[in-house]
Amino acid sequence: MTGDNKLMLSVVPDPSTRARERAAQNWARYPDATDGVSLPPVVHETVELLRARTVFDLGRQFTDKQRVAIARFVITMSVAVGGHRFADGTADVVIAVSVWAGLMALLPVGVLVSRHYDAQAAAQLEAAGFTAVTDPSGRLRYVPPGRQHPGHGNPFVGGA
């Protein structure tokens, strides 16, 4: 996470002894994995946890107020541009304003749906033993069991 509130995915090597042991075991079990065919099987539960973690992190990128403000701006600009481009008379303006009002009325529903997905993802992560932590920018994040927030104890942060 950078200071300008951009969500950034960083893939860094895990320097722990356990990670090196897992890597050695995987190389021994799947020596031809580099061919792209002889890969380890996909573990559905692991993929679902990654999905839940991603959904939670993306859902927390902005506050509810920020998301509503962004949505209001996008809806207003979209309807204004569309209304200006296609309006031929009063009826078209009334339709554009009605579409705008309808979409604005749906914003609270979008917030509730977003909160629902965030809660589902959080419950799934907590059930898997993930720990809730607050990152330096104040966002709530989940880290795997026994791990630290990215950047804490990582020898690559601030270096190369």
Rank of each mutant, 00 (worst) to 15 (best):
residue 1 M to D: 06
residue 2 T to Q: 04
residue 3 G to W: 07
residue 3 G to N: 03
residue 7 L to T: 14
residue 15 P to S: 00
residue 21 E to F: 08
residue 22 R to A: 04
residue 22 R to W: 14
residue 22 R to N: 12
residue 24 A to P: 01
residue 24 A to L: 08
residue 25 Q to S: 10
residue 26 N to S: 12
residue 29 R to W: 02
residue 34 T to F: 11
residue 35 D to W: 11
residue 37 V to P: 04
residue 38 S to C: 04
residue 40 P to Y: 09
residue 46 T to P: 10
residue 46 T to V: 13
residue 50 L to Q: 15
residue 61 Q to G: 02
residue 61 Q to A: 14
residue 63 T to P: 14
residue 66 Q to N: 04
residue 66 Q to H: 03
residue 72 R to N: 14
residue 72 R to L: 11
residue 73 F to W: 14
residue 75 I to E: 11
residue 76 T to L: 12
residue 85 R to C: 02
residue 87 A to S: 01
residue 88 D to S: 12
residue 88 D to G: 13
residue 91 A to P: 11
residue 93 V to Q: 10
residue 95 I to W: 15
residue 95 I to L: 05
residue 97 V to A: 09
residue 98 S to N: 03
residue 101 A to D: 07
residue 101 A to K: 10
residue 101 A to T: 11
residue 102 G to L: 12
residue 105 A to F: 10
residue 106 L to D: 09
residue 109 V to K: 11
residue 111 V to M: 06
residue 111 V to D: 11
residue 113 V to I: 15
residue 115 R to H: 14
residue 118 D to R: 11
residue 119 A to M: 01
residue 121 A to S: 00
residue 121 A to N: 01
residue 122 A to T: 06
residue 123 A to V: 03
residue 123 A to C: 03
residue 123 A to E: 12
residue 125 L to G: 00
residue 127 A to M: 06
residue 127 A to S: 08
residue 129 G to K: 09
residue 131 T to R: 13
residue 133 V to C: 00
residue 137 S to D: 11
residue 141 R to W: 09
residue 147 R to T: 05
residue 153 G to W: 08
residue 154 N to A: 06
residue 157 V to S: 09
